[in-house]
């Protein structure tokens, strides 16, 4: 599970940034006092417009960056004190595909599996399962540079899942993908829930959120604007649609 409490993140401002923002402050706040938790067997969605602070929160969860204050717990591990231990439990899909263009899908998956110390037998099993699920067998030996965006995203997801993590974090996993590819990724997220994994994904596609989410949090300007179950969100809806409600919350 993921548990974050009173999370703050400030970034230092350089001269140019101070000029742009017309401020003399040394730091800019990206995340302010955010707390929520995601449970195993649950799909949790982090929503927010561009620049809301979603990616910053996900990066802190994956321990790529450290929070200015607050606490993060991943499967009971203090992720700030023991980031490497926490990373073993996480599968993190970044916003970009983040793949090596000169390597093949096979080579990338093998490489990341080796970094997670995945035993050979498990690697074979996981590769077979994920390649079949994501329909990757046809292009697994091709170099990444020659693949389409959808194919690359499948490889990225496979890379994220290869070590069978307990916590899966997806940063806009279906962004820029065609419907068929997006559907296979949505199916994978459902499978993760069925396998009792903790799934956290950020998105701004309300249809996807409606389809998958058990609980959601809405972030705007680094602050938590809404946090609760999807059922509650639907029940208290004042707008005509989920998108309308999302806009209402963000603008309130």
């Amino acid at each position: 599970m993921i548990k974050i409490e009173n999370l703050f993140k400030e970034f230092p401002l350089n001269k140019e940034q101070k000029k742009e923002r017309n401020t003399s402050d040394k730091f800019a706040s990206a995340v302010e006092d955010v707390s929520f938790n995601c449970n195993p067997g649950e799909v949790f969605s982090l929503l927010g417009p561009n620049g809301a602070g979603k990616t910053t929160i996900l990066r802190m969860l994956s321990t790529v960056i450290q929070p200015s204050s607050g606490s993060i717990e991943i499967c009971g591990i203090d992720a700030i004190k023991y980031p490497r231990e926490a990373r073993k439990k996480i599968g993190f899909l970044t916003g970009s595909t983040g793949l090596y263009a000169r390597l093949s899908a096979h080579e990338i998956i093998d490489y990341f599996a080796s970094l997670y110390n995945v035993p050979q037998a498990l690697l074979k099993e996981r590769k077979s399962y994920l390649f079949d699920l994501l329909g990757m067998n046809d292009f697994a030996n091709k170099r990444i540079g020659k693949l389409s965006t959808g194919m690359k995203q499948k490889v990225s997801i496979c890379r994220t899942m290869i070590h069978d993590p307990d916590v899966v974090i997806f940063d806009e996993p279906t962004s820029g993908l065609d419907v068929i590819t997006a559907e296979s990724i949505i199916q994978l997220i459902r499978d993760c829930r069925d396998q009792n994994k903790t799934v956290l994904f950020s998105s701004h596609i309300m249809g996807e959120v409606d389809l998958l989410c058990d609980r959601l949090a809405i972030i705007h300007q680094g602050k938590l604007k809404h946090h609760g179950t999807m059922e509650d969100f639907r029940a208290q809806m004042t707008g005509k649609s989920l998108t309308g409600e999302f806009i209402n919350i963000v603008q309130s």
């Binding site: 990066r59 994956s62 321990t63 790529v64 490497r84 231990e85 990373r87 073993k88 996480i90 993190f92 970044t94 916003g95 970009s96 595909t97 983040g98 793949l99 090596y100 263009a101 990341f112 970094l115 997670y116 990225s156 890379r159």
Partner: peptide, 14 residues
Amino acid sequence: ERGTIETLLTTPVH
């Protein structure tokens, strides 16, 4: 630039 460093940093490697 390619965004691969972030991916690498999420692995449990020092």
